[in-house]
Simulated scan of single mutants.
Amino acid sequence: MDANGQSLVYVSARETREQADIAKVLTFDEARRIAVNVAKLPELLGQSKRGFRRKTRWHNLLGQ
């Protein structure tokens, strides 16, 4: 969820590769990796935990 309580991502998963293939979804391990990376997005985009934007190397490259 974001700072306003809005869900950002829903990921469907199953326990085994066979179950995931049948349902055409991810395994729990794959879904966990995606969730971890989504949780890192604010930091990667230059936002602190309080929502204040700080300059990152990416912003410097863009001249922002």
Rank of each mutant, 00 (worst) to 15 (best):
G51M: 04
R33D: 14
A31K: 02
T16D: 01
V9Y: 02
N60P: 00
L45I: 01
L45R: 02
R54A: 04
Q19H: 00
K49Q: 15
M1C: 04
A13V: 08
P42G: 01
N60E: 14
A31F: 06
G46P: 00
I22Q: 07
T16V: 01
G5L: 12
F28A: 10
T56P: 01
R32P: 03
R57D: 05
D29V: 10
I22D: 00
Q64E: 15
Q6M: 12
Q6W: 10
K40P: 00
L41T: 12
S7F: 03
A39T: 08
N37E: 13
R17K: 07
V25T: 14
N60A: 11
R33K: 12
N60M: 11
G51P: 08
S48A: 15
N37A: 10
K24H: 08
R53I: 12
R53T: 10
L26N: 13
Q47F: 15
D2Y: 05
M1V: 08
A13D: 01
N60C: 04
A20R: 01
T56M: 09
E30S: 10
S7K: 07
Q6I: 13
V25G: 02
A23M: 09
R17H: 02
Q6S: 11
P42K: 09
A13T: 09
E15H: 11
E43P: 00
S48P: 03
Q47Y: 15
G51K: 07
R17P: 03
A31I: 06
K55R: 13
G51N: 01
G5M: 10
R54T: 10
S12H: 06
Q6G: 05
G5Y: 07
D21M: 00
S7D: 02
R54P: 02
E30Y: 00
E15L: 11
A3P: 14
A13N: 05
S12W: 13
A31E: 03
L44H: 08
K24Q: 15
L26W: 03
K24Y: 07
K24P: 03
K55A: 08
W58S: 10
V25K: 06
N37D: 12
A39W: 13
L62Y: 03
R14Y: 07
T56E: 04
T16A: 02
E43T: 14
L62S: 05
Y10S: 09
Q19W: 03
R17V: 05
V9C: 03
Y10T: 08
A3L: 10
V25D: 04
A20Q: 04
A39L: 12
E18T: 06
V25Q: 08
G63N: 08
S12P: 00
G5R: 13
K49C: 14
T56Q: 04
L62N: 10
R33Q: 12
N37K: 07
R33V: 02
R14I: 03
D21K: 00
F28G: 02
I34W: 05
N37T: 11
A20T: 06
K24E: 15
M1A: 10
R14T: 06
V25N: 02
R14C: 11
A20F: 05
L8E: 14
Q6F: 06
T27F: 09
K40A: 12
F28C: 13
T56A: 02
S12K: 09
I22V: 05
L44E: 15
G46T: 07
V36Y: 08
T27C: 07
D21W: 01
